[in-house]
Structures are given as structure tokens and as C-alpha cells.
Amino acid sequence: MLSVKGLRANVGDQEILKGLDLEVGPGEVHAIMGPNGSGKSTLSHVLAGREGYRVTAGSVTFVGQDLLALEPEERARLGLFLAFQYPVELPGVNNTAFLKAALNSLRKARGEPELDAVAFLRLIKDKLRVLHLDESLLKRPVNVGFSGGEKKRNEIFQMALLEPRLAILDETDSGLDIDALRGVAEGINALRAPERSMILVTHYQRLLDYIQPDYVHVLAQGRIIRSGGKELALELEEKGYGWIDAELAA
């Protein structure tokens, strides 16, 4: 599904990703953990196609295509989804109109007919119910005046609607209290499917109490320095990130 090989990327003159390798198969859930500044968010952004990053080496293949050659919207249409760490507010942009434009652009790319207003409303109301979200959300401008938890849940709601092949969840747990975290995690678990892969990017282990990953990777100084099963997350929780510095220094 996703194959990252030797990826190097700069922000300005500074190299953030220094030869990163990652293979994600269909239906797999990978957790990428690492301390602040290790390159977690850079990886998410480079995969989604955000401006401001320069890839200097390596390749990224997604469902057989050269991902880095594509515009952000083309990546989304191939089935890539990024749940933002800091979802932006879009003043004046109605949530329903936004969701409809997004879904229809994806459907069009897949060769499916656009949904009419009635069918669309029925669909989003179903999805809202599954995620225990209030319908009033639809009438508001995208993320404007939403609490931190509401913004994160709105990301998961979009993911539920857009049904990506690969979802990258960037620090989805940050800023959430335990109840909000549980709600968001439930939403994510409900979306696990044999054909849907996920990358959970997180600093803390606590999200993984609710979402069990198949693989855990430790990202440090722009490279994945260790990979393992879910028990690796527990080890990190126990030892913190301090040992990494020691290991890298060695």
C-alpha cells in the first residue's frame, strides 16, 4: 500500500528526515512514536503534500503511484487522508458544503456519480450517529469556534465520510482529556477495516491503550531506529525517550 524508501526532506536548510524507510501493508495499523523534533509531523506533512518541505532523496510509492509527484488533492483522491494535529478554522465555509465538495471530488475521481443533496445528507447523518456527533456541527463553519476535542472528532468524522485507504493520524491524541480521547479512539477503531491502513503518529503511548497497533516504530533524528510489535510502545512508556539519546550517541 505505502512504501517509503530512504526519504530525506528539508525544511529550509535543515534536514529533518534523514533516510526514512517504512512499509505499510493493507489493513495494517502502524504507530510511529518519537520525541519532539524527531520528524513525526514532517513525515505526515510530506506524505500529504504540504508546501514548505523539500524532498532531497528517496521515494514514496502509494498504491503503485509515485506519491511525491502528486498534488495534495490528487493524493487525497487516491485514498490518502491526513487527520491534522491542528485542524484549521475556515471562517465562512459551511461544514456541509465543505464535506460535500470533498466527498464528491473523491467520488468523481473514482468514477462514481456525485451524490445529490438528499443522499448526501442521509449519508452524513448516518456517519454522525456512529461517531455520536451532534447534527448542529453541519450548520457551522468548518472548525470555527470548535473546542480542541470537537476539532479532532471532526477530523475523524471526515475520515469516516471519505473512507480513505490510508489514514495518517497526526498527534490525534494531543490536547484531549481522557473522555475526549476515548471518544476519538472509539471513532478510529470503528473505522478499522481489512482494506484500510492507518499510521498513528504520537508522542505518548496512551492513545495505544485504546487503539492496538500491529507495528510500532520509534522515530528519532529523522530515521526509524527501532521497529517492533505493540509491546515496544509499553517499553517506551516505561523507559521514556531518554535511552534513545544514549543509543544514538553510542
Binding site: G49, F84, A101, L162
Partner: peptide, 14 residues
């Protein structure tokens, strides 16, 4: 640019 990127990341063209 962040707002544009957010919309584009959802499949909406520039």
C-alpha cells in the same frame, strides 16, 4: 496557505 492546504488535502482542487 494552511487553509488552502487543508481543503486540498480533502481532495478539493486548488
Amino acid at each position: 496557505p494552511e487553509l488552502l492546504f487543508y481543503l486540498r488535502s480533502r481532495g478539493i482542487d486548488a
